[in-house]
Lab assay of single mutants.
Amino acid sequence: MQGVVKVNSALNMRSGPGSNYGVIGTLRNNDKVEIIKEVDGWYEIRFNGKVGSASKSYITIVN
Rank of each mutant, 00 (worst) to 15 (best):
N48M: 12
S9V: 13
V51R: 09
S19Y: 15
E34Q: 11
I24W: 02
I59W: 01
G3R: 00
R28N: 12
N29M: 09
S55E: 15
G18Y: 02
S19V: 14
D31G: 02
G22H: 13
R14E: 05
K6C: 14
R28V: 11
G52M: 03
Q2P: 09
S55V: 13
I61A: 06
S9G: 15
E38D: 07
K32I: 15
Y58L: 06
D40H: 10
R14A: 06
A54W: 03
V4I: 13
I61R: 06
K50C: 10
V23N: 03
Y43A: 01
Y58W: 09
G25K: 04
P17E: 04
I24Q: 02
V4N: 03
I24T: 06
S19C: 15
S57V: 13
I45S: 00
G25M: 11
I24R: 00
G52P: 01
T60N: 11
V4S: 04
T26K: 12
V4P: 01
V23R: 03
G49P: 01
Y43K: 00
S55W: 14
N63I: 11
K56I: 09
G3S: 02
N20I: 10
G41H: 06
G16K: 02
S55F: 13
F47A: 07
A10Y: 15
N30M: 09
G49F: 05
D40N: 13
K6Y: 08
D40K: 09
G22M: 13
K56G: 06
D40F: 09
G49M: 05
A10P: 12
E44V: 15
G41W: 05
I59L: 03
Y43L: 06
W42P: 00
N48G: 11
I24G: 01
I24P: 01
K6Q: 11
Y43W: 05
G3I: 05
E38F: 05
I24A: 04
N20M: 11
I24N: 03
E44D: 05
N8Q: 12
N20Y: 10
G3P: 02
R14Q: 08
N63M: 12
I59D: 01
G49D: 09
S9N: 12
S15K: 09
G49I: 05
R46V: 12
E38T: 05
N12F: 15
N12Q: 14
G41L: 06
V62L: 13
N8S: 13
K32G: 05
L11R: 05
K6L: 09
N20H: 14
I59S: 00
N8F: 12
G52A: 06
K50V: 14
V33G: 02
G16Q: 02
D40I: 04
N30F: 08
I61V: 12
I24S: 03
I45T: 00
F47D: 01
S19Q: 13
K50R: 11
M13S: 01
N48Y: 06
N63W: 11
R28Q: 12
G41D: 10
K37M: 09
D31K: 03
N48F: 07
G41C: 08
I24D: 01
N12G: 11
V33E: 01
V39D: 07
D31Q: 07
E34D: 11
G18C: 08
W42T: 01
I59K: 00
G16R: 02
T26M: 11
N12H: 15
I35A: 00
P17T: 04
K50W: 08
I24Y: 00
S9Q: 12
L11T: 11
I35K: 00
N63S: 13
N48V: 04
K6F: 08
I61P: 09
N20L: 09
V7Y: 08
A54D: 02
G41S: 06
Y43H: 00
F47H: 10
N29H: 09
A10M: 13
P17H: 05
P17W: 03
K50G: 06
V7F: 06
T60L: 12
G22E: 15
T26D: 04
V62W: 07
M1Q: 11
G3F: 05
Y21G: 06
G3A: 06
N30S: 06
G16V: 01
V33C: 04
G18E: 03
I35P: 00
E44S: 06
S53D: 03
S19W: 15
I36Y: 06
I61Q: 06
G49K: 04
E44L: 14
Y58H: 12
S55G: 09
I36A: 02
T26S: 09
K50Y: 09
D31I: 05
S55D: 15
L27N: 00
Q2T: 13
E38H: 04
N63T: 12
Y43F: 10
D31S: 07
I59T: 00
M1V: 12
F47T: 03
I36G: 02
S19D: 14
K56V: 10
K32L: 14
N12M: 14
W42L: 01
N12S: 14
D40M: 09
S15C: 12
N8H: 13
S55P: 15
I45H: 00
V4K: 06
V4Q: 08
D31H: 04
D40P: 06
E34Y: 11
I61E: 04
N12A: 15
N48W: 07
N63Q: 12
N20A: 11
V4G: 01
D40Q: 09
G18I: 00
V7E: 03
W42Q: 01
I59H: 01
I61N: 03
M13G: 02
G25H: 09
V5G: 05
G49S: 06
R14S: 07
T26A: 07
